[in-house]
Design a protein around this nucleic acid. Structure first.
Length: 323
RNA sequence: GCUGAGGUGGCGGAGUGGACAAUCGCAUCAGACUGUAAAUCUGACGGCCGGAAGGCCUGCAUAGGUUCGAAUCCUGUCCUCAGCA
């Protein structure tokens, strides 16, 4: 049975580093599950940690990989920062690459902090291939959440009833729900297609640490990214035509600099804000991940965590040969 | 020292006799999440008890006073800022 190793958890816990170590030990290749690392030219701010002169190596499946420390890393640079990206696109990429890796007899290691992407790959998102309708979205644009909910109730009572109080006030979710229900109204016989991987032997590793440990890590990392030249990176993006309102520029560390470039706000304030947001983000990630009972958690502030992970993975990995 | 303005919850800032534990924003905390997910959204946020409904206590610089009732009116004190000296 094919295997899949997943490494998830909040930001700044060293997921990629661990993944590379494990890839070396268990003959693996890495697939990034990160909604920001997909953008070309966004390297420093998204923490791609590419070596000097790294070059994307294209393959004949239409996707490319970087080699880091001798390990192929997929999932970077899938999109232009001027373009929209979403789980849907990610799901047209990741499962394919995973089965390619299977084919090479190597271990696919899915690594990232974007919970939805991981979920999409493993469990599938039934409505992921329902396309967006810009026309519909435009029509819905100015409506209040109440009005949107009303509209949804009319086309899809079931879905409307199943939404929780938070989502009922979330225009973005409501619009999407209306879009989906409208789509199935127009395509009654269409079977939705699940863009997930086949059932396989999957191990989930979650990396976590006490709050203040993570916070400190975030502070250091932000400082490093400032030193590494996030400003220049942003300037390059802007020069190449990327707009502050593009989805890619909503990324942490990038969006905060808008007031610096456009409003003359001091960099100290920008960095403060960025750091604070990053901590909140880590919190949101934990809220998501801790619900998934499949995850086996490891505390990275434990000096022996790396060995402990390796031991667990080894045990799981070996079971292949016991079959 | 005089004159003027002002002192409200972690911060900014409303409120100028009753509907005030006090609009709102920020920060903080908790949560949601099935095509923007580093996005988007929700809730809590003086203290104590309670699952909740609710109840009790403390409270708008400070000490008094007026009033059935005060963050809001009056007086003293302290402090801050601006202008004049």
């Amino acid at each position: 049975m094919n295997k899949l190793l997943i490494i998830c958890g909040p930001t700044a816990t060293g997921k990629t580093l661990l993944a590379i170590t494990l890839a070396k030990k268990f003959d693996g290749e890495i697939i990034s599950a990160d909604s920001r690392q997909v953008y070309k030219g966004m390297n420093i701010g998204t923490g791609k940690d590419l070596p000097e002169n790294a070059k994307l190596q294209m393959t004949d499946n239409g996707f490319g990989f970087y080699e880091i420390d001798g390990i192929p890393v997929w999932g970077y640079d899938l999109a232009d920062p001027k373009e929209e990206f979403s789980v849907s696109k990610y799901l047209k990429f990741a499962p394919k690459i995973i089965s390619d890796i299977d084919g090479r007899g190597r271990l696919p290691i899915l690594v990232g902090g974007t919970g939805l992407y991981i979920k999409g790959v493993v469990d599938g998102i039934p409505t992921a291939d329902v396309p967006r309708s810009m026309e519909l979205r435009e029509k819905l644009l100015g409506k209040s959440p109440d009005e949107l909910f009303e509209t949804l109730s009319q086309t899809d009572t079931l879905k409307a009833g199943s939404m929780n109080t938070s989502d009922r006030k979330n225009p973005r979710r409501l619009m999407r729900a209306i879009e989906v229900s409208q789509y199935f109204l127009d395509h009654r016989n269409k079977e939705s297609q699940l863009l997930a991987i086949d059932k396989r032997d999957t191990m989930f590793i979650g990396l976590t640490a006490p709050r203040d440990f993570v916070d400190r890590g975030i502070e250091e990392r932000v400082e490093r990214r400032v030193r590494d030249g996030i400003k220049d990176e942003i300037k390059n993006l802007l020069d190449s035509g990327v707009d502050w309102n593009d989805q890619s520029m909503l990324s942490l560390g990038y969006r905060q600099y808008r007031d610096f470039f456009e409003g003359g706000v001091g960099e100290e304030l920008i960095i403060d804000e960025w750091t604070r947001e990053e901590k909140r983000y880590a919190k949101r990630q934990m809220t998501w991940f801790k619900k998934d009972r499949r995850i086996l958690w490891f505390d990275v502030s434990d000096s022996k965590f790396s060995e402990k992970v390796e031991k667990s993975v080894k045990k799981w990995y070996k079971s292949t040969y016991d079959e």
